[in-house]
Amino acid sequence: MPIDWIWGLIGGLLIGTGGAVYLLGNGKIMGASGIIGGLVDGSGLNTKWERILFLLGVAVMPVVLYPLYRDVDTHITDNYWVLIAAGLLVGIGTRIANGCTSGHGVCGMSRLSVRGIVATCCYILAGGLGVILFRHILGVI
């Protein structure tokens, strides 16, 4: 759709504002995988409420906005094997790399962090090649 990029830009500005609030307010880098992962492996339990409330905000705002919005299909695959494999890869990968699209991508690249830029190049390249392999060659997605 031709106006999707405008919504993309507005949404992007909101995402960045969230990151700015987290940085200047709490002195932390807003990385979704780090915030979730610290709760899962126990490394971030000393700040558990900060993490839980952040995730609550992420999960609840779409519910609030849902009725106002037009096209909300997630188009998620119904192949559970694909979802299990993808979820495991995302969980393991982001924790080993110490960041995902928000931490390395948004927060890292905006301060020209070499690690952020290298990580982002790697996951975009792997994602692009993955889509070619799984969609155009193997036809599983």
Binding site: W7, I10, G12, G19, L53, L56, G57, V58, M61
Partner: peptide
């Protein structure tokens, strides 16, 4: 944290 998460979630949804 709640405010930041709310902004992040809204942005992900709207975009």
């Amino acid at each position: 944290a709640l405010l930041s998460g709310g902004l992040f979630g809204s942005g992900l949804f709207i975009s």
